[in-house]
């Protein structure tokens, strides 16, 4: 067992591009679910819209990279409007159903054979990140020697990604301390009460859906950029649920909840993966019990267990306030 190697690689993942992706997606969900009480189960759809818009604008239509980013953000707004207009007047569960369906529709559409020439079908698109990578100031291996290191491209994605995270957190913090954020939190508690006080609940919910969706699109950009490729399997439904896990681990309705959640989630997931793989490889877990292939899947079992324990012993997440959560039980 090479513990140093396990920790080093787990840390690499915990701060790496994947953590950034889930962090951004979870910040969006935090605005939706944590603050406004909107059950968006289609965050992967917002990510797919963002990622595919950027990728196809560049590699299919040959337009500049920045235009791809702008189109991605605009389409995320359009998707939020499309989802919100019919459902935000209805009960919260309708939005959940519509968003999960919409995310699947988007994934199936971009992966379809008839749109192969635009979106590359199941193989997806590549070759859109050259202009992004050309801006990369790093070269060689970046990190703390002997502790953790990243390849130059990953380090560049991480730098941009974590800056985006900081900006998003700042926006969320600014918004949520304001009267605007107070209305959002009030809507989460009881939207009829808010309506009776003269606030246009529908408009606030729409604004929330759009802002969280745009954060989702940012996560989509990073998804595409971190592997310099994009394909429909990057945006499967479980991505949304991982993002929810990240949010709940960190604590919903807390500005830094998604950040802590993403780092811990990815650190633990890779740690368990590496531990079980090595344990099986070095014979710590005998072949008769499980093979190394099976061992690597143990991470999801233990992650699930950890989640259960979290929900039992610390349901408010890392940053949450237990007292606040206890109010629900009344």
């Amino acid at each position: 067992m090479d513990w140093q190697n396990i920790f080093s690689l787990a840390l690499q993942q915990g701060l790496g591009p994947s953590a950034v992706v889930y962090c951004l997606a979870a910040i969006g969900l935090n605005v939706h679910f944590g603050y406004t009480g909107l059950l968006n189960f289609g965050q992967a759809g917002f990510m797919a819209i963002g990622g595919y818009a950027m990728a196809s604008v560049v590699s299919t239509w040959g337009l500049p990279f920045w235009l791809g980013v702008v189109v991605g953000l605009l389409l995320a707004v359009v998707l939020a409007l499309l989802l919100g207009v019919p459902t935000l007047r209805l009960r919260a569960d309708y939005l959940a159903i519509v968003t999960i369906a919409a995310a699947e529709i988007i994934r199936q559409t971009v992966g379809s054979v008839s749109l192969l020439e635009y979106f590359g079908g199941q193989d997806g698109l590549t070759g859109f990140s050259d202009s992004f990578r050309s801006l990369n100031p790093f070269s060689g291996s970046i990190g703390i020697p002997g502790v953790v290191s990243w390849r130059a491209n990953d380090a560049w994605v991480m730098l941009v990604g974590w800056i985006l995270v900081v900006i998003c957190c700042l926006i969320v913090w600014l918004l949520m301390r304001s009267p605007w954020g107070r209305v959002l939190k009030s809507i989460r508690e009881d939207e009829d009460a808010v309506r009776s006080l003269g606030k246009n609940v529908y408009s606030y919910k729409m604004q929330s859906l759009i802002i969280g969706g745009v954060f989702g699109a940012l996560a989509g950009f990073i998804t595409a950029l971190k592997s310099a490729a994009i394909n429909p399997s990057f945006f499967a439904t479980d991505i949304t649920f991982f993002a929810y896990t990240v949010l709940l681990v960190g604590g919903a309705a807390r500005v830094l909840g998604p950040v802590a959640g993403a780092i811990i989630f990815w650190f633990l997931l890779s740690f368990l993966d590496l531990f079980f793989t090595q344990a099986a490889a070095t014979g710590l877990i005998p072949e008769s019990i499980m093979t190394s292939n099976q061992a690597s899947l143990m991470r999801f079992i233990f992650m699930g267990l950890a989640l259960m324990l979290l929900m039992i012993f610390r349901p408010q997440g890392i940053f949450g306030d237990r007292k606040e959560l206890a109010l629900d039980a009344r």
Binding site: R182, K185, S186, E189, D190, D192, A193, V194, E324, L327
Partner: peptide, 9 residues
């Protein structure tokens, strides 16, 4: 009729 306070505020 059923009081609507905003519990977590």
């Amino acid at each position: 009729q059923l009081t609507k306070v905003l519990s977590k505020l």
